[in-house]
């Protein structure tokens, strides 16, 4: 976990608290989108891989909603785009 990047730390913390993942990877891709209109507004681009037993028997769209819900108000400000891979321990 990159302590130097406060947004990664924030995403890490919120997902860990909400979904108790067994695997959690958060990657900041904002540097790839410099000059993109969304990036100019200040929101970052992130990739997350979340492996959690909480996703068992849950359809994809609901899994993504669970991740968005965990992020809460950050989706309106800090995060412009969140690319999500949400798997159960069996699928990972």
């Amino acid at each position: 976990m990159t302590e130097e990047n406060p947004r990664i730390a924030m995403i890490h913390e919120r997902i860990t608290e909400a979904l108790k993942p067994t695997v959690l990877e958060v990657e900041d891709e904002s540097h790839k989108h410099v000059g993109h209109p969304g990036a100019q507004a200040g929101g970052g681009h992130f990739n997350v891989l979340v492996v959690s037993a909480a996703f068992e028997g849950v359809p994809l769209i609901k899994r993504h909603r669970m991740v968005y819900d965990a992020m809460g108000d950050a989706m309106e400000s800090e995060i412009h785009a969140l690319s999500i891979k949400a798997k159960t321990p069996d699928e990972a």
């Binding site: 994809l60 769209i61 993504h64 909603r65 968005y68 989706m75 309106e76 785009a81 969140l82 690319s83 999500i84 891979k85």
Partner: peptide, 21 residues
């Protein structure tokens, strides 16, 4: 549909998801 990002794909009036899904 309470979905925070773009794009959004709808089939038969229902949200299927965004790009990843």
């Amino acid at each position: 549909a309470n979905w925070p990002t773009f794009p959004q794909i709808y089939i038969n009036g229902e949200l299927v998801g965004g790009c990843d899904i």
